[in-house]
């Protein structure tokens, strides 16, 4: 392995890591912020939910499925006009954040919907019997009991979208995955590719490890 090549690429590797952090650091919090209420909505307006509205549920559910079924590369291209409208450009890191977020919101919403469904109906039923409002049930019961599972979902989403962000090269978005493709794949700089891949593995490992720890720390369903 040629250390000099790696040394020469260090500034670019640094830059790529920053870009990855920027993409994930904006897209994931936005997905959590918008996907959580969407997931709760999907759960509570489902035919068996807290406030069943089967027709609007079917519409929203279909839209969610549609966005989710787009391969990320296609979505990236397809929504370029929208991206330009939001961030003023269709190239660069900022331009990748838009499709990443658009893709991550329904992805995360489905996970949250699952997390809540799996809680069972007991505590919700007890809360209804206690005269709780729907908002109170969501805030004080569902989100409290689903918290560990939702943290797990944030971990899964982050790891998936670190991988998705590697496709950002198509619109010049940068990031560590893109670096691996550009230098490693197109220019046969194996050293750079290896370093980039090792960094990605480390990044994913750190995210997964912290996520798992946090889930274990917040989950009180089993005694330690």
């Amino acid at each position: 392995m040629n250390l000099q090549t790696i040394q020469a690429r260090l500034p670019e590797i640094n830059q790529a890591m920053l870009e990855t952090f920027a993409m994930i650091g904006v897209a994931i919090p936005l997905a959590v912020l918008l996907g959580t209420p969407l997931g709760i909505w999907l759960w509570s307006h489902a035919p068996a939910g807290l406030k069943p509205t089967p027709k609007s549920h079917a519409v929203v559910s279909t839209v969610v499925n549609m966005v989710r079924s787009f391969p990320f590369l296609i979505l990236l291209i397809a929504i370029i006009p929208f991206t330009r409208l939001i961030v003023g450009t269709s190239v660069g890191t900022a331009a990748v954040i838009v499709p990443l977020t658009i893709n991550a919101i329904p992805y995360f919403a489905r996970l949250v919907e699952q997390n809540i469904t799996q809680l069972g109906t007991g505590a919700v039923e007890a809360s209804r019997a206690m005269g709780a409002t729907r908002g109170q049930i969501i805030r004080h019961v569902l989100l409290v009991d689903a918290k560990p599972a939702i943290i797990g979902s944030i971990t899964i989403t982050t790891v998936s979208f670190i991988s998705y962000s590697a496709m950002s090269g198509l619109v010049g978005g940068g990031g560590i995955g893109d670096l691996a493709i550009r230098y490693g794949y197109y220019r046969y700089e194996t050293e750079t590719m290896v370093v980039a891949c090792v960094l990605m593995v480390l990044l994913v490992t750190v995210v997964q490890y912290s996520g798992t720890r946090l889930v274990r720390f917040t989950d009180k369903r089993v005694t330690a």
């Binding site: 505590a123 007890a126 809360s127 209804r128 019997a129 206690m130 005269g131 709780a132 409290v144 369903r221």
Partner: peptide, 28 residues
């Protein structure tokens, strides 16, 4: 909802909130 504050209910499966302590459950 208001009337239900005057009607307590208990269940076969207890239906407590698992991620809240005993006192937090009662405070609910």
């Amino acid at each position: 909802r208001r009337a239900r504050h005057q009607i307590g209910m208990i269940f076969q499966g207890f239906n407590l909130v698992n991620n809240l302590t005993v006192v937090q459950n009662v405070e609910l």
